[in-house]
């Protein structure tokens, strides 16, 4: 696989809805916020599975994955996508969860390997900072 210089190129982010949940307003707004911030957005949209998301991350050489969840299923589904990435050898690609996530679930999601969580009302500045933050942390950890 071609290795990009992750420090210099624009951040490439895959955005998806995992599962049956159809609430895509937030994810679409986030797509535009990230694009306006200079990132490359690969918008997978609705009804994705862990398999289709992992394939896209691999093919697009993505730096980060954003998953939107409004189905109260995040404690079940978020660990599944983290595990699926790890199984595919993409464990260094951080996962950001956005949507309806209560504060009391943050510790459990962090323990499951989720890089960051953007709850209801997160501002554009917070969205961009959060995605940059997890990518930068990953870049530093891998010593690039």
């Amino acid at each position: 696989m071609e290795v990009r210089n992750k420090g210099a190129a624009p951040i490439r982010v895959v955005l998806a809805k995992l599962g049956l949940d159809g609430h895509d307003r937030g994810l679409k707004v986030v797509a535009r916020i990230l694009r306006d911030a200079g990132m490359e957005v690969v918008y997978l949209g609705l009804r994705q599975t862990t398999g289709t998301i992992v394939d896209a991350v691999e093919q697009e050489d993505a730096d980060v994955v954003g998953i939107s969840m409004h189905n109260a299923g995040h404690l079940t589904l978020a660990p599944l996508i983290v595990a699926a990435l790890a199984d595919a050898g993409l464990g260094d690609v951080p996962v950001v969860i956005g949507g309806v996530v209560p504060d009391e679930d943050l510790d459990e999601l962090a323990a499951a390997g989720v890089g960051a969580v953007l709850g209801p009302g997160a501002s554009a500045v917070e969205v961009v900072a959060s995605v940059r933050g997890v990518v930068d942390a990953g870049v530093r950890a891998s010593g690039n």
Partner: peptide, 22 residues
């Protein structure tokens, strides 16, 4: 719930994590 709205049974693979949740 989302699986019912999407015409999927509760034991369908795509229903994982969404049965009775919303």
């Amino acid at each position: 719930d989302m699986p019912t709205l999407m015409g999927r049974d509760s034991d369908h693979p795509l229903a994982i994590g969404e049965v009775g949740r919303a």
